[in-house]
């Protein structure tokens, strides 16, 4: 191995989107960071907040509209044009397919994955601006949410961290 640059010690990961493919990358990166002994603050904002809303976070879906990379029935299948993607059940079907593949490689459902990150010592926060905008209260969140943060508090917590926006 060549030179050894300084290891990453701390990351702040922002999840801003509410689709399955918008949420999972941040969760996988957060969990993976903990597996490497890296400190993690996970911050949910805008529609990303749906990942931590207990009423909705088990029914997060893939968008089958406006996604030019989408193929059926699998990743090497035929392109799925937006006009077909709008058909009822398409999004649910694509979500079901992807979840099945995820389960095979031991990627848990979103609620379980958040509990896993919490157990691993990762910190989970909600964005205050979004919470106010969506009229949410603490009761709407899964219990692993530590608290609601302003953007300023988020930056304070992120001192010395790399910030990753997803």
């Amino acid at each position: 191995m060549a030179e050894n640059p300084e290891k990453i010690k701390k990351v702040s990961i922002i999840v801003s989107r509410g689709s399955l493919d918008g949420i999972y990358p941040g969760l996988i990166m957060a969990n993976g960071a903990r597996m490497e002994g890296i400190d993690v603050n996970l911050f949910f904002t805008f529609f990303g907040l749906y990942a931590i809303l207990k009423k909705y976070n088990n029914s997060i879906k893939i968008a089958t509209v406006g996604n030019p990379a989408m193929r059926v029935p699998d990743a090497k299948g035929l392109p799925l044009p937006t006009i077909v993607g709008i058909l009822p059940g398409m999004s649910a079907f694509a979500t079901w397919m992807m979840k099945k593949e995820m389960d095979k490689i031991d990627i848990p459902p979103i609620p379980e994955m958040l509990a896993m990150i919490d157990d691993a010592g990762g910190n989970i926060y909600a964005c205050k601006a979004t919470v106010d905008m969506f009229h949410l209260t603490k009761d709407d969140f899964i219990p692993q949410v530590k608290r609601v943060l302003t953007v300023g508090e988020f930056y304070e917590l992120s001192a010395g961290a790399q910030i990753i926006f997803t």
Binding site: R34, M35, E36, G37, M116, D119, A120, G121
Partner: peptide
């Protein structure tokens, strides 16, 4: 998972 992380702090699986 909590126990695993406290038994092997800083990268339990590795």
């Amino acid at each position: 998972t909590k126990d695993l992380y406290s038994l092997f702090p800083g990268g339990p699986l590795k």
